[in-house]
């Protein structure tokens, strides 16, 4: 039913965004945790890229194939957040840049809060429909 309300795409987008932000947060925490680890290479997930991948991967619009040999849409399972090594400069000990990590932490926090805020409003919207619709 929720899907029929054309909520689906936004819903799924927010779900993915929260998921990626969560994953990204763990990675940032990991990088900060390894501040004192010699020769540690920080890792990251590009939020925008990951979200694009996640959204493109699970497109629910079905494609009509005129030939069985044509390539179909990317199956959802294949599109995941790609973890890459961060491009940071060597600081003489490892590759962790604490200023950069802290900034990313704040940035990611904002993304997470924004996504959850929209989700909360979306749910409030649905509740409103349920409450008022029966009258």
């Amino acid at each position: 039913m929720v899907e029929k309300l054309s909520f689906e795409r936004t819903w799924r987008g927010l779900e993915k965004a929260l998921g990626i932000a969560h994953r990204r947060h763990s990675l940032i925490a990991e990088n900060i945790g390894h501040l004192d680890t010699p020769r540690y290479k920080p890792r990251e997930v590009d939020f925008q890229e990951a979200l694009n991948d996640a959204m493109a991967g699970g497109a629910r619009v079905s494609m009509t194939r005129t030939d069985t040999k044509h390539l179909g849409p990317v199956p959802e399972g294949l599109a995941g957040a790609e973890v890459k090594e961060e491009e940071e400069e060597w600081n003489g000990f490892n590759w962790v840049n604490i200023d950069r990590e802290m900034t990313k932490l704040v940035e990611n926090d904002l993304i997470y809060r924004t996504a959850s805020e929209i989700l909360i409003r979306k749910i409030a919207f649905l509740k409103e429909i349920i409450r008022e619709g029966g009258r």
């Binding site: 925008q48 840049n97 200023d99 950069r100 900034t103």
Partner: peptide
């Protein structure tokens, strides 16, 4: 993303002062 631009600039300031 727009809002993160100022974060980027501030980070460069932090980095420079640390150096």
């Amino acid at each position: 993303m727009g809002i993160f631009r100022s974060f980027e600039i501030s980070t460069s300031g932090l980095h420079v002062q640390r150096k």
